[in-house]
Amino acid sequence: MKKRILAIVLAAAMTGALIGCADKGKDTEKKEKITFVLDWTPNTNHTGLYVAQEKGYFEEAGLEVEIVQPPEDGAEVLVASGKAQFGVSFQDSMMPAITGEDAMPIEAVAAILQHNTSGIVSRKGEGMDRPKGMEGKKYATWDLDLEKATIKNVVEADGGDFSKIEMIPSTVTDEVSALESKSVDAIWIFYGWAGIACEVAGLETDYFAFKDINPALDFYTPVIIGNSDWMKENPDSAKAFLSAVQKGYEYAVESPDDAADILLKASPELDEELVKASQAYMKEQYIADAKQWGYIEPARWNAFYNWVNENGLSESEIPENTGFTNEYLEK
């Protein structure tokens, strides 16, 4: 009996030692490092990334992900250079990077939001609940060709005269103050942040979305872009990264309040009321009517670039199916 007990004790000790060694090996297992560059300061467009980081989804995928702020020339250049493997961009702004002889090795690999939530916000009751109402009003413009062509398109589609809009060169960073001070009358915004900010501030507004005027303007904004060369060489890592990110955004859909807390923990400088209200809005936008988070519908992607081509807004013709892939998303 004593020999049996001794054998059991020794076996238990050996098992414990083996488990300890296995745990130690697991702890010291080298994670693959990935750098992800944002497009702007943290906001609810990025919630799924911070959830994936906080919840350990990246770690479970064998990844060590660093989220960094963008340089002045944007995420596209950093991703194309290989200094970051992934980043945030927009179908409209990545257009020059994927065309012509100097095209960069980047492509969109996931849609953060399924539809274009941008449009024009204005003070309520001043007639700008429709594009024609912008006639005679002050619009804050970035003075970009694509931007002005978009405004012209929706105004003329509504029977308005684009030339009657007063274009005020302005980079508005506080939409509420700009509208309340009447320095401008109309601003291009993304409703999920700036539109919600107006609601939180108690400012009554009118708003129309570009996609509701012209379906070709329902382009993908924002998107996650990746370095094409790196992804071809590391397809499993690219898929593991996007799978973890997908879990993060799915969590934000299911638990928006908790996801908002995770974003606030990562960026405590953000306004809590705004983040919570924005997250409640965004939970309906991440997947919306798509079959899964991240999926890019080829027909809709192509429709926007075809519109760009037809209006001569790109230096080079953009062939269909340029600049995106669904290859690295979970099937």
Score class of each variant (00 low, 15 high):
V79I: 02
A80L: 07
A80S: 10
S81Y: 10
K83A: 15
A84P: 06
A84N: 03
F86V: 04
V88C: 11
S89W: 09
Q91T: 03
M94F: 12
M94Y: 07
M95R: 09
M95N: 08
G100D: 00
G100E: 01
D102F: 13
A103Q: 06
M104W: 06
P105E: 03
P105Q: 05
I106N: 01
I106Q: 01
V109L: 06
A111G: 12
I112F: 00
I112N: 02
I112H: 02
Q114E: 09
H115Q: 09
H115W: 03
T117Y: 05
G119P: 07
I120L: 05
R123N: 01
K124F: 11
G125P: 10
E126I: 01
G127R: 10
M128G: 05
M128P: 01
D129F: 13
D129A: 15
D129S: 15
R130C: 05
R130L: 06
P131H: 06
K132H: 00
K132R: 15
K132Q: 14
K132V: 10
M134T: 08
M134Y: 02
M134A: 14
E135G: 05
G136Q: 04
K137C: 06
Y139A: 00
Y139I: 05
A140G: 07
A140Y: 00
W142R: 09
W142T: 03
W142Y: 07
L144A: 11
E147P: 00
E147V: 12
K148A: 13
A149N: 10
K152E: 02
N153D: 03
V155A: 12
A157K: 15
D158V: 11
G160R: 12
F162L: 03
F162R: 09
S163K: 14
S163E: 07
E166D: 13
I168Y: 03
P169C: 15
P169G: 03
S170F: 15
T171I: 07
V172T: 08
V172W: 05
T173C: 03
D174W: 11
K182I: 01
V184K: 05
V184E: 04
D185A: 15
I187V: 15
W188N: 10
W188E: 03
I189S: 00
Y191P: 02
Y191K: 13
Y191E: 04
Y191A: 10
G192D: 11
G192N: 13
G192Q: 08
W193L: 15
A194V: 00
G195A: 08
I196S: 00
C198Q: 09
V200P: 01
V200N: 02
V200W: 00
V200M: 12
A201S: 15
G202C: 13
T205C: 13
D206E: 13
D206T: 07
F208S: 10
F208H: 06
F208D: 00
A209S: 09
F210Y: 11
K211F: 13
D212G: 13
P215A: 13
L217W: 11
D218L: 10
